[in-house]
Amino acid sequence: MVKHLLISAGLLLLSACASSGQTAYARLGGMPALYAVTDNFITLIEHEPRILKYFKGVDIAEFRRHFAIQLCMETGGPCEYTGRTMQDAHAMMNITEADFNLTVELLIKAGEQAGLATSEINYLLMKLATMRKDMLYK
């Protein structure tokens, strides 16, 4: 019974979002909001040594630009991501499940700090979750 209620509530939420006619990109606040999430995410990573180790040698300005553009594209914005595939970008990094989960926690916190609603943070996570398999150590 509870499972059916949760599914129904989720479907209602999705239909309400779809019926507003706005893309997630517009609901989030466009590029200013996506850059706020990205900048918060980078700051959180800088203070988390378990994740920071994966960014050794990474051009942070390039990461910032690519991450924000990817968020834009994933949320229906006018951007086109032209960076490396997630599999290529994360190859040889040996990212563990625990570190991946910690990174997701940092992304949630980054969204909260940017003032995003929980439903919008969940939407971002849903869109990015499809890339999980390409990031984890195999």
Rank of each mutant, 00 (worst) to 15 (best):
M1P: 09
M1V: 09
L5R: 10
G10Y: 09
A18P: 01
Y25K: 07
Y25V: 10
R27T: 12
R27H: 03
G29C: 07
G30D: 05
P32T: 06
A33M: 06
Y35C: 07
Y35E: 14
T38V: 06
T38K: 03
T43A: 15
T43G: 08
T43W: 02
L44S: 05
I45A: 05
I45E: 02
E46N: 13
E46D: 10
E48H: 02
P49W: 05
I51Y: 01
F55V: 14
G57S: 08
I60P: 04
I60M: 15
F63Y: 14
F63N: 11
R64T: 11
H66F: 09
I69K: 10
I69G: 04
E74S: 12
G76E: 08
G76C: 12
G77W: 04
E80N: 11
T82G: 15
D88T: 14
D88P: 02
D88I: 11
A89H: 09
A89I: 07
A91C: 11
M93A: 10
M93Q: 14
T96K: 15
E97I: 11
L106V: 12
L107G: 04
A110G: 07
A110R: 06
G111W: 01
G115M: 03
L116H: 03
S119R: 07
E120N: 13
E120I: 05
N122T: 05
Y123W: 06
K127P: 00
L128D: 00
A129N: 14
A129W: 00
M131K: 13
M131C: 05
R132V: 07
D134A: 14
M135Q: 11
L136P: 02
Y137L: 07
K138M: 04
